[in-house]
Design a protein around this nucleic acid. Structure first.
Lengths: 98, 98
DNA sequence: AGCACTATCTATAAATC
DNA sequence: TGATTTATAGATAGTGC
C-alpha cells in the first residue's frame, strides 16, 4: 500500500510489525463501527440477565467487549447469537450436578 | 467512497443497505485475516480442554468461530484471553453449588 | 513511543451488464 | 437478483520528527 506494495506474509522486523499492527487494528475498528452504523446493527440485549452473565465473565477474563468486540460482532451480525450463548451457559450452570 | 462520498449514518434504502453490508463485511474479514498474517497472531490453543469447552459452547450457540470470529480475534490479539475465559467458565462450573 | 505527512495502494459506491 | 466495472474515497507504508 502507501509508499510501496507489501506482501501479505509475516513482517519479520518486530518494530515494523508492531507499528503495522497498531495502524491496521485501528483501521479495522473504524471500519467495523462504520458498518455497524451504516447497516443498522440492532442494539445489544444488555438488559437480558442471561446475556449479562456472559458479558461479565468476558470482562473478568480481560476481554473488553465495549471497545474491542462489540462493534466487530455487531458489524458481523453475530451479536444476537451471544444471547443464545448466554442461555447455553445458564443451562450448563443449572445442569451442574456435582 | 467510490462514485461519491457517503455519510456514516444508517442507509435507509434496504437494498443498498444489504449490498453495502455484504461488501463491507467481506472487506472487514479480508483485512482481519491480512492483519493476522502480517502480525503473526499466535495459534489458538485448541488442544487446551478448557478452551475447547468454550469453543464448543459457542458453536452450539451458532457462532462459527473458524470463519467468523477467529481471524478477527486473532487480529485483535484477543485470542489468548479466551483461554482465561475458558478457565473462568470452568471455575464457575466447579463452584456451582445447587 | 507516538504523531504527522503523503504518495500510493486498496476498498468500495454507483453504474452497468 | 447477482456479477463486473470503474472512478473516487479511504487506508496505510515508509519517512521524518
Amino acid at each position: 500500500m502507501a509508499r510501496g506494495k507489501i506482501q501479505i506474509k509475516k513482517i519479520e522486523n518486530s518494530t515494523n510489525r508492531q507499528v503495522t499492527h497498531s495502524k491496521r487494528r485501528n483501521g479495522l475498528f473504524k471500519k467495523a463501527s462504520e458498518l455497524t452504523v451504516l447497516c443498522d446493527a440492532k442494539a445489544w440485549h444488555l438488559c437480558d440477565p442471561n446475556a449479562e452473565k456472559v458479558f461479565k465473565a468476558l470482562n473478568k477474563a480481560g476481554v473488553n467487549f465495549d471497545t474491542r468486540l462489540r462493534p466487530l460482532l455487531r458489524a458481523l451480525n453475530c451479536d444476537h447469537r451471544f444471547d443464545a450463548l448466554a442461555v447455553s451457559a445458564e443451562e450448563r450452570a443449572l445442569n451442574c450436578d456435582h
